[in-house]
Design a protein around this nucleic acid. Structure first.
Lengths: 378, 378
DNA sequence: CTCTCTGGTGCAAACGATTGTGCCAATTGC
DNA sequence: GCAATTGGCACAATCGTTTGCACCAGAGAG
């Protein structure tokens, strides 16, 4: 290991192996290794090793116009849902020598635009967008420029992008079915923003389920959040409860909205779950330790990330290929926030005390909705 | 706005303005603008505008050996503490045209090394390390190479790096004082890893406070976590409670450990806070909604990020200057997890009012006590 | 009227890699 | 034994910028 001020360059390696830099380059690159003789390849590799040569990614990017970097846009990194997803993404990408540039946009289109442009300028090889709205100029632009893009968690019909997300309608149907099985009939919904696929699909799932059970839904039973935030959850929860005396259960558009809703319960002196049951969506980390532990719809976070990575790698690799729409199956997680309707004693809820029950609050019953995991393709 | 397949390059701008590319470069760069005449500068700027010219950061990096990029190493992105910090960091950096590369290391030195090298290869202009251990070869290397580095949340004495962190000892002293004021005397501590400044300082704060109140601390009262994780919190909580019948309060090394400890409470049938009070450290998001809401020590997360950014920008800008050690003041946040010692009614837990027995743990530990758990490093 | 400055530009060489093209030998085929 | 093929390598251009240096015109000084 020779020491020098400046890191070894390809010329250095070439010189050490007494070949031309071009030859050294070919010898070192897997794709072109077969263009040089066995013997020189060995000599070059050995020299590179000895000098501790590390190719300069910047120079390489400049020449090849690819960076082995992908841009990942996250709507809200403060939402604990995303870290595990990102982790899956990074792990999978790393296996293929890619690194992820994380950018959070706070749901702000201007900010998203900025980050997106920044990343394009840095020659990212593709994008994973968890920020997609149903129509967005970023998607238009990406389509036109034929950028490799994968949508994650959210979808956007009409764009030629692969996507991986949860079967939202199915998840919400399971949630509603669960509440109905507990005797609830007056069920409200805090809908996520309707320009986001998850907001739309979950609302649709809610309305479908109710309708198919012949449970009427009037306007006061659905309020629309403008963002998937605690603050909006608080506001919508307040509105829903104040406009609707008889509500006994709430389906929230996601966990953040549900948690926000907890605040509304506190404010209005509504006890959860005795007075009102609530169920969320996402099963984000720590949600099982809330007061009360939130019933919710789970999907495999980490895998969402790895699958998104897979789809993007496919796209980057082949350039073409079929557009794949991948759904992961949701799973209903029943915890303490949903109980049978009507006057009742809730023995265990109150009790941090009831620890003799074998099932600690953190342990939930998992009801699988679908067989087998989602699969690629088709 | 001229449309072409490929984005406008500096040559294009130069051609459009009928000057040499070099001149165009000078005209466009604030630092060298005064080298060209007013008139040409205007012409070039106008042409650049018209062509929608965006300088290619890759090419620029190659030439200037700086990337306007900083590497940020986070020990665990799943910890909700970090997103707000990172956000502060990014916001402040963005104001100065820098972007942050986030890398999470999972507390794994190998992974940290990998990410670090990757980032160096990409010519980041500096590092913000939230992963520092008291001695690490990465810090050694950064020192030797004279890299601009700022330590965030953690410190490491003996290295010439600026840092911003919390006054951990003061925070823990406040926590202990709070517990003592509630009548607790048998107080345990779940110590963070002792090769990390926070673990060490908080333990020191704990021991100091106890000692200064003439409260003896024997070995069974302190257990050592090997990581700041839920799993370790669970394990240590279990060990602490099993080895110590009379414990009435726990000071956890951070919030994650405290939450893990909640799991141990459930397992062992210990009620919190009736039987045992617990206090954490960090006041991470959502911790106020746990069951029970966790008392903890808060510090301003976002500001930790912005201050780290400030320090790094200083360092990058001037290259030299004094090394600054910045502490943010902690603040005690009292919530539901800490109550006065002894038999008591916890009012809002209806139906459990008769639970006043001071915690005779169902399981009497026959397991001999073990002193400090294995520690990292040295 | 010549000489010396000095703004203002152009020229060309970097930065560190990849890659199309062409040359030289050695091998093969007849 | 000679022509055609081909494997292996070197040459040089290129990616898009920045920057040291040289050059040139005009201004001011003597």
């Amino acid at each position: 290991m020779a020491l020098s001020d400046r890191p070894a360059t390809l010329r250095d390696v070439a010189a050490a192996a007494r070949v031309h830099p071009a030859t050294a380059s070919r010898a070192l690159n897997p794709g072109t290794r077969l263009l040089v003789s066995e013997e020189t390849a060995r000599r070059v590799t050995e020299a590179a090793e000895r000098l501790g040569y590390r190719p300069n990614p910047v120079a390489r990017s400049l020449r090849t116009r690819r960076s082995h970097t992908v841009g990942v846009l996250i709507p809200d990194l403060n939402n604990p849902l995303f870290p595990p997803i990102v982790r899956g993404l990074e792990d999978r990408l790393a296996e293929h020598g890619y690194v992820a540039l994380i950018g959070n946009t706070d749901g702000d289109p201007a900010r998203e635009r900025m980050v997106f442009d920044q990343m394009r300028a840095r020659l990212v090889d593709g994008f994973v967008l968890a920020t997609a709205t149903l129509h967005s100029d970023i998607l238009d632009e990406a389509t036109e420029a034929d950028l490799p893009v994968v949508l994650m968690n959210r979808t956007a019909e009409g764009y030629p992008f692969s996507s991986v997300s949860v079967d939202n309608e199915q998840g919400v149907r399971a949630a509603v079915a669960h509440l109905i099985s507990l005797g609830h009939t007056r069920i409200g919904h805090i809908a996520g923003p309707q320009d986001i696929s998850t907001g739309l699909a979950r609302l649709r799932g809610f309305l479908d389920s109710m309708r198919s059970r012949n449970l009427p839904v009037d306007d006061s039973q659905v309020v629309y959040a403008t963002a998937l935030s605690l603050a909006e959850g608080l506001r919508c929860g307040r509105e829903l409860l104040e406009g609707n005396d008889e509500l006994t259960a709430i389906v929230a558009g996601n966990d953040m909205l549900a948690v926000g809703c907890y605040g509304a319960f506190d404010e209005l002196g509504v006890r959860c779950p005795q007075d009102v049951s609530i169920i969320g969506f996402n099963d984000m980390p720590f949600i099982d330790r809330l007061r009360p532990p939130l019933s919710t719809v789970r999907f495999p976070h980490y895998q969402l990330g790895t699958e998104a990575a897979n789809l993007l790698l496919e796209r980057i690799g082949t350039g073409g290929g079929p557009v794949k729409i991948l759904y992961l199956a949701p799973e209903l997680i029943v915890r303490g926030s949903t109980v049978p309707v009507g006057p009742q004693v809730v023995p265990d809820l109150a009790g941090e005390g009831d620890a003799r029950e074998p099932a600690a609050p953190a342990v939930a019953s998992a009801v699988p909705l679908r067989r087998g995991q989602a699969r690629h393709g088709r």
